[in-house]
């Protein structure tokens, strides 16, 4: 595999997705969970622009990417706000310790 610019972007997308999913699986801290979601979204933003470039409709890909950035900032804000409340009620951000609902 030669390192053309397109290939490098493809590797970047795959790498970000890999890091994000791996992190989501192993992390025990709620703030880090939200960070991992953000890393996944960065992969998606890159993928959308890349897809626009590949199909020759760069404008569409870029506008989609910009919208994703806005929408996902809101998700991050809500996620962090919930994490703050969790810290207040449970006194911890450790995921296994806040798991009370079962069955």
């Amino acid at each position: 595999m030669n390192f053309t610019p397109l290939n490098i972007i493809l590797i970047g997308i795959a790498g970000l997705l890999g890091v994000g999913f791996y992190g989501l699986l192993i992390t025990r801290n709620l703030i880090k969970v939200v960070m991992m979601l953000q890393i996944l979204i960065k992969a998606v933003v890159l993928a959308l622009v890349f897809a626009g470039k590949l199909s020759g409709n760069l404008g569409l890909g870029q506008s989609a990417a910009a919208t994703v950035i806005v929408a996902d900032t809101i998700v991050a804000v809500v996620g962090l706000a919930l994490a703050v409340q969790v810290r207040r009620r449970f006194g911890t951000l450790d995921v296994p310790k806040i798991s009370t609902l079962k069955g």
Binding site: L24, I41, A43, G79, Q85
Partner: peptide
């Protein structure tokens, strides 16, 4: 809060999948 957090993380991961599909 626990239910909300679980819902958010799973749903946000799902929406990443949808966006990859769209790409």
């Amino acid at each position: 809060l626990e239910a909300g957090m679980k819902y958010l993380v799973q749903s946000a991961t799902g929406s990443v999948m949808v966006l990859m599909g769209i790409a």
